[in-house]
Amino acid sequence: MDVFVSQFLNVEIIAQAWPLLLRGLGMTALLCAAVIPLGLVGGLLVALVCLSRHRAVRWPAFVLVDFFRAVPPLVLLIFIYAGLPFAGIRPSPFVAVCVAFLLNTGAYYGEIYRAGIESIGKGQWEAARSTGLTAGQTLTWVIIPQAVRNVLPDLVSNTVEVVKLTSIASVVALPELLYSADMARSLTYNPSPIVAAAAIYLALLWPCVRLLSRLEHRVGR
């Protein structure tokens, strides 16, 4: 038991690492503030392209979406961060993460929006167009608000996944929460800082997960 506490819940070491962890948390927050809006907006564009009436537009979009859903985000990130310099493009870790997330989570958000938009009956389109609204106005004021409400649990769920996913930025040395914790671990030879980071992730995401589970089961019934 003592071994367990000293190895996983070592208060002294966690206290030492605390300032580092906080700085890491700040970077994680910054990262989220960048990649969540990017994904939400990018995904909407992806969905609209995928719903295009023109086959020549729709099909390449589907192929790209499946492509980015098939490649693990970490692979995408490393390709961008370590591969692109060979083509003379040197993105900073932060930019590399943002681009990788835009491609990966854009595809996932896109699928969610698409399901939402497809769930709205044709009658809504026809009613809106019959009152003289343009296609764009119909989409903005009638379809998308209903679609978003229908898939809200999925959007929240995917956003939780995005927040969790920011931890892979540690692999390209972006000093976010997990990177800072792992740095502290390697300095102290003690995994307690990672346990502390896990506790921080839990504190942030547990309420969201609880909420989700309620939403999902309510929809399920």
Binding site: F8, T166, I168, D182, V195, A197, A198, L202, C208, V209
Partner: peptide
């Protein structure tokens, strides 16, 4: 559901 898998992997692997 709340923990990033990489965090759990590191805890288990190094812990």
């Amino acid at each position: 559901r709340a923990l990033p898998p990489l965090v759990v992997i590191l805890i288990v692997y190094f812990g």
